[in-house]
Computed example of a mutant assay.
Amino acid sequence: MLLTSVIIILREVLEAALLLSILLAMSRFLNLRVRWFWASLAMGVAGSILYGANLVAISNAFDGVGQELLNAGLQIAIYLLLLLIAALLIANRRRGAYKVPLLQGAMLLAVALAVLREGSEIYIYLMAFRHQPDLLPGVMAGALLGAGIGFSVGALFYYLLRGLPQQYTLLTACVLLTLVAGGMTLQAAQLLIQADWLPAQPPLWDSSVLVAEHSVVGQLLYALVGYEATPTLVEFLVYIASVSVMVLLLGWMRYASSKKNSPVA
């Protein structure tokens, strides 16, 4: 149970920790207050406990696929918030303080929803062993190890962004946010396939021989780009479409901001 717990908790913690580290680093980069950080954690933890406590009712909704639909909705909501955040990051960097309350509010909601989504899975998993005292110590030890690894990777990305030359920081953060956003929509597509809201299809390829999904590298890729060893055509198209929308939006924002700041002849 120790290794299983490490992998499960690592998978859940990594995604939230990665997103949190990127947004926190960008707040520091733009000299913004980070009070949203603590509020988002509190909201996310409270929401995850509420989610876990009402799991039966949620799961039974919509003819038994309520949990899949709610999780997919959370992922799509985070994706939309990341579109807004990335656009405002570029605007703030090029125009100075621009719609800062909106940017901080979007960061708060994105992290809170990510913590709610991943935290609820952790809460449900741990609660399943509360009446199994023989297994609980190993499960808790594995959970602590997995969480420690996940937060360590998040800290690594935070200090990586903070240590970059300033001219590369925003670009790197936008690339990372684009990859994370694409992963969110890919996971949403997978959940909608499980709920029979999208068609199930045979996989396009199987890359598990190269990188196993349950390996540490696989979990890191899952958190960063939504890595799936056996993606279907629907999942692939959703991922490409969502990344393309993000890239086009960032390109347009950069162009619009540069034109606005260019000197008038």
Rank of each mutant, 00 (worst) to 15 (best):
L113Q: 09
R95S: 03
L135Y: 10
L113V: 06
V139I: 15
L103S: 13
A112L: 04
L136I: 10
M107T: 09
A97S: 14
I85Q: 13
L126V: 12
D134N: 15
Q104T: 10
Q132T: 10
A141P: 01
A97P: 02
L135M: 15
L80W: 11
N92P: 00
L113E: 08
R117I: 00
Q132I: 01
M107K: 14
L81W: 02
A128L: 04
G119P: 00
L136G: 03
Q132N: 10
S120L: 00
Y125C: 06
G119R: 11
L102E: 11
Y79I: 05
E118C: 06
A87F: 04
G142T: 03
S120I: 00
L126Q: 08
D134F: 07
I122N: 06
I124F: 12
D134I: 06
M127N: 13
L80R: 13
A87V: 13
P137L: 08
A86L: 07
A112D: 02
L81Y: 07
R130S: 06
L83I: 05
N92M: 02
V100E: 07
R95M: 14
M140N: 05
G138F: 04
L136M: 07
P137I: 04
I122A: 12
L84I: 02
L126A: 11
G105M: 10
H131T: 13
L81I: 02
V115A: 13
L84E: 03
L136W: 06
L136H: 05
A112N: 07
G96T: 09
V111H: 13
Y98N: 08
G142M: 03
K99Q: 15
G96V: 05
I85E: 10
I122F: 02
L116N: 02
Y125T: 09
A112R: 12
H131Q: 14
A141H: 09
L84Q: 08
G119E: 03
I122Q: 07
M107C: 15
L81C: 01
A86I: 09
R94D: 02
V139A: 04
L80S: 10
E118M: 11
A112F: 00
R95C: 03
P133A: 10
N92L: 02
D134T: 11
E118A: 11
I124K: 13
Y125H: 14
M107Q: 15
A86W: 08
I90G: 05
M127L: 07
L103Q: 12
V115T: 11
L135K: 15
A141M: 15
N92A: 07
A141W: 10
Q104I: 03
L83W: 04
I122G: 01
R93N: 14
A110H: 06
N92S: 12
